[in-house]
Design a protein around this nucleic acid. Structure first.
Length: 497
RNA sequence: GCGAUUGUAGUCUAGUCUGGUAGGACGCAAGCUUGCCAAGUUUGCAACCCGGGUUCAAAUCCCGGCAAUCGCACCA
């Protein structure tokens, strides 16, 4: 499936589309429709259950999307998110000024201002490397969206560029409330904002995005994890050292020193989430270790979580596992004058952070890409049941007052426990086809025998499975238990280490 | 931000070069039909991205904007 096909599906079935589309839209900003919202919620709830609620020490919080300027200066975003850009007056190519000057072997101090850059360009007569044209004046470009609050619009603030900062800013209070114990996890699911220069590829590069992040604060000297690494899965991994994809046991990655134990454990956890909970085929999921220039400066170990997504042309980042050391709490300690170090067993330490970060929108797109199949006439979205927007549909085989009465009754019975689709237009085959396309795992159909007292099948209905189109007949009163069983799957069961 | 391509009912698309009644498919609605997998049939609904210009006349030509895809660049 290519991007255009996926978008056509998304628009026609109620998944997502551009915000304010009747006005022509806004680049990189999207709305979710009724079906997309259901799907997104399923992903978020499953993520929450698996990574957060499975632990007694991890909690979800909700942080504001607007942050004052100071913490973002401390975190480095105000400076590092801030590139100085310079363009060519002739061919209009533009460059990051520091990269351009480094290539031209011109030395400038790190974090040089536009004025300093312009001076250096003038002194060295630096030209456009492509066309040798004159370079323009440089200017600062910040990826963060800024806001000015108050009656005079003087209070500078930003829309948060990542949810992570909300976790760090709330560490101190949460730690004190929660019995001062480590490890402690703070999770957020929420919006983040980045002023991307050029939003691309549907939900891949967005200006307003949803992140699901878990920040685990821990003491590296004492954190104990399950060294069976949750059945020690074999994972696809591109290590920085090797540079190509290979299959490795988690235990190997730990014993050969690629990652520490706690990191390996979380690789296993994430692998389980993608391959067992979301049921992404193993060959489509991998870890990709970033190093050197590509690694964010604060990270000690940085792996992207990648899924092979056809519409995005191959393996693409859907999340990250980042060992951030004590960078975050140390910089906020400096910036706020609030000592965020903690005392554990009489020892004073600055907690380290392991960040599990997921792009929710990218994962929603990924699920559609991975599970949508077109087989001749048939369109099938074979989502795992736990991700299905509608869990079942209840249909009447045909227009008939008796049947419709029974259908309505069955719907009421199921509605309080499950998300039930109810729309009777079209033939039964068409109804099934529609449900296949939006990933509804079960269609329950009331037919003439169901309501005919003379029939041996009186009081029964048929339940059709989405993937193999098979049908089983069962008494109406068995339908609820059947559904309870089919949706009993609890993602957190994988995690009890 | 630069370059290329593109923008037509809810969705996909013909028509644009060469200006002159916007056509099809799917969809949706109502009816007939239909006893389990997108059937048939009748009737109906629904569109030229936005703004300006040229012209007797613009979906079509020109200018500006917005948006999308791809490439470059960018993505602490």
């Amino acid at each position: 499936m290519n991007i255009d096909d996926l978008f056509a599906l998304a628009k026609s079935r109620g998944l997502f589309w551009q915000s304010a589309e009747i006005y022509g839209g806004l680049a990189g900003i999207y709305d979710y429709g009724h079906l997309g919202t259901l799907l997104k919620r399923r992903f978020e709830n499953t993520w929450l259950s698996f990574f957060v609620e499975s632990s007694d020490n991890y909690y979800l919080i909700e942080g504001s999307t607007i942050l004052p300027e100071k913490p973002l200066i401390s975190s480095g975003h105000a400076e590092r998110f801030n590139d100085v850009i310079i363009s060519c007056t002739k061919c209009h190519a533009y460059y990051r000024a520091d990269v351009l000057l480094a290539d031209a072997k011109v030395e400038v101090s790190e974090g040089a201002t536009p004025d300093e850059i312009d001076k250096a360009v003038q002194e060295h007569g630096t030209k456009c490397p492509k066309c040798k044209g004159q370079l323009s004046k440089s200017k600062a470009f910040n990826m963060m969206m800024d806001l000015y609050l108050g009656p005079e619009k003087t209070d500078k603030s930003y829309l948060r560029p990542e949810t992570a900062q909300s976790a760090y800013l709330n560490f101190f209070r949460e730690f004190n409330i929660r019995r001062r114990a480590l490890p402690m996890g703070i999770a957020l699911i929420g919006k983040a904002y980045r002023n991307e220069i050029s939003p691309r590829q549907g939900l891949y590069r967005m200006r307003e995005l949803t992140q699901a992040e878990l920040q685990i604060f821990f003491d590296p000297a004492t954190w104990k994890v399950d060294t069976n690494y949750i059945d020690n899965p074999t994972v696809n991994v591109v290590t920085y050292k090797k540079g190509t994809m290979e299959k490795k046991k988690i235990s190997e990655l730990v014993s050969d020193g690629t990652v520490p134990e706690f990191y390996g454990y979380h690789m296993a956890l994430i692998h389980t989430f993608y391959t067992k909970v979301l049921q992404v085929p193993e060959e489509k999921f991998r870890f990709f270790e970033k190093g050197g220039e590509d690694k964010a400066f604060y990270n000690k170990i940085h792996m992207d979580l990648e899924v092979n997504i056809e519409s995005w042309g191959g393996f693409k980042e859907v999340g990250g596992l980042h060992y951030r050391g004590d960078y975050d709490l140390t910089s906020h300690t400096k910036g706020s004058n609030q000592d965020l170090s903690v005392s554990i067993d009489g020892k004073r330490i600055m907690p380290n952070v392991l960040e599990l970060s997921f792009g929710v929108d990218r994962n929603v797109w990924m699920l559609i890409d991975v599970f949508y199949k077109k087989d001749g006439e048939r369109s099938l979205l074979s989502l795992p049941a736990i991700m299905a927007p509608y869990q079942a549909a209840v249909f009447s085989l045909q227009k008939d007052p008796e049947i419709e009465k029974a259908t309505a009754k069955l719907r009421v019975m199921l509605k309080s426990r499950f998300k039930i689709f109810a729309d009777e237009s079209g033939s039964i085959g068409k109804k099934y086809a529609r449900m296949d396309e939006v990933g509804t795992p079960y269609c329950i159909t009331v037919d003439f025998d169901s309501v005919n007292k003379e029939s041996k099948d009186y009081g029964t209905v048929t339940v059709r499975s989405r993937d193999d189109r098979s049908q089983v007949r069962m008494p109406v009163e068995k339908v609820l238990p059947f559904m309870e069983e089919k949706f009993a799957f609890n993602p957190m069961n994988f995690v009890k280490a």
